[in-house]
């Protein structure tokens, strides 16, 4: 996704995990990155999301 270090990514979020938690967190984030990449997969430009803004109950 990017070439920056995981430590730098965590710093940019403003979160301050314990040093000993970092390897586990990095593994989890890698899983999430892979999931996000799958979600971003090719789709039509105009494909709508399933949730909608509604003024009144349908």
């Amino acid at each position: 996704m990017s070439e920056i270090s995981f430590e730098a990514r965590v710093r940019a979020t403003g979160l301050k995990p314990k040093a000993e938690d970092m390897p586990k967190l990095e593994a989890l984030v890698k899983d999430m990155d892979r999931a996000a990449e799958l979600v971003r997969g090719p789709r039509a430009y105009s494909e709508e999301p399933l949730s909608a803004f509604r003024l009144k109950k349908a």
Binding site: Y45, S46, E48, P49, A52, F53, R54, L55
Partner: peptide, 15 residues
């Protein structure tokens, strides 16, 4: 919002 169809109009922001 919802009165006129947006179908077939290039979207900018769905909601």
């Amino acid at each position: 919002y919802g009165l006129c169809s947006r179908a077939g109009v290039l979207p900018l922001s769905f909601t």
